[in-house]
């Protein structure tokens, strides 16, 4: 798959300022974004279950430039959504789409290994198994055991609206996510207690916001402006929770569930619980899944005089 992709990129690189992909990072268990500017960079390109980043996040910052981007199924939805909202110009972007077999969750991997990720000496993939040497112990982990939650419930493994599609198309087989089911089953009061306990961990580093492909306000984000002052500087569960409410509500009907917020969280707050819940609402109300149809208007930017699924609230 990677060779086919390299050939496809090499063919188009001349017309593009850069192509964004992944390369191996600082150790055998991390990939890192790669900016391919010339053919000499191409040999560093890598794919596979470590390519966790959603590279569409870079695109709004590169608006106006001719850029290529390598995307998984979920990332391709972000590209479509950004284009639908006019945040990027689709004709400027060349989308190299993958048929994705799923990516790992580093949190799950950490839990599956006998020592911290930093002690990994070597790691190799054998189809869907990872063989690693960690602090002197040889271990083997199956990909399905450390698959990111978003991949368990994935409905779009194959990149949508790609200019070049690489790999054999997969049939989606979405499964329910165990942690979401457990959360949904909680009584109301326990959900609030859960968020209070979880948000107490938040250090308000804004990594979730910065990693989000659809959070495009940058310096104008209302979480950090002083006028209007939406959020105080205090680090309390209530304020941290309020910050997440800002993020979720600003992404209502826009979130493509790429999971970057949850992945980037340094204190492992399960942010996708909120995102998935919101996406369920917009899907049931407006039959809308963000970033699946090019040219579609996000549901909260439009209306119907007679709403099919909203009851006119009679008192």
């Amino acid at each position: 798959m990677v060779e086919a992709l390299k050939t496809a990129i090499a063919e188009r690189l001349a017309d593009l300022e850069m192509v964004i992909g992944w390369e191996m990072g600082f150790d055998a268990l991390h990939a890192t974004p790669l900016f391919i500017r010339e053919e000499g960079d191409l040999h560093r390109l890598t794919l596979g279950p470590l390519a966790v980043h959603n590279l569409a996040t870079y695109l709004p910052g590169l608006k106006g430039k001719k850029v290529g981007v390598v995307v998984k199924g979920c990332d391709s939805r972000s590209v479509i959504q950004l284009a639908n909202e006019g945040l990027i110009k689709r004709e400027d972007i060349t989308v190299f789409g993958l048929c994705c077999d799923g990516v790992i969750s580093h949190r799950k991997l950490r839990e599956a290994l006998p020592a911290d990720l930093g002690f990994v000496e070597q790691a190799t993939w054998h189809s869907d198994r990872l063989q690693a040497v960690v602090a002197g112990h040889a271990v083997e982990v199956r990909l399905q055991d450390i698959l990111a939650d978003k991949c368990i419930s994935c409905r779009y493994p194959n990149a949508l609206a790609a200019d070049v599609l690489v790999g054999a198309a997969r049939t989606p087989a979405p499964q329910p996510v165990p942690c979401q089911d457990a959360f949904d089953a909680l009584p109301q009061a326990e959900k609030l207690a859960f968020w209070e306990a979880t948000m107490a961990r938040c250090i308000r580093c804004y990594a979730c916001r910065n990693a989000c492909p659809l959070c495009v306000c940058r310096d104008h984000c209302i979480a950090t402006t002083r006028d209007p002052l939406w959020l105080g500087q205090e680090n309390s569960p209530a304020e941290n929770f309020m910050f997440q409410m800002i993020h979720v509500l600003h992404l209502a009907g826009r979130c493509t569930e790429c999971g970057e917020c949850e992945r980037s969280c340094p204190v492992d707050i399960p942010l996708l619980l909120l995102r998935r819940s919101m996406n369920r609402v917009t899907e049931e109300l407006f039959d809308y899944q963000a970033g699946t149809t090019p040219g579609q208007t996000p549901p909260l930017l439009t209306f119907q005089v007679e709403e099919a699924r909203i009851n006119e609230r009679g008192w």
């Binding site: 009061a189 959900k191 609030l192 968020w195 929770f241 919101m278 549901p299 909260l300």
Partner: peptide, 17 residues
């Protein structure tokens, strides 16, 4: 527009506790 926003929030609130 308000109707869509308010209904979305109303249904979402459950997840916030």
């Amino acid at each position: 527009y308000a109707r869509r926003r308010l209904e979305t929030l109303k249904r979402f609130l459950d997840a916030t506790g």
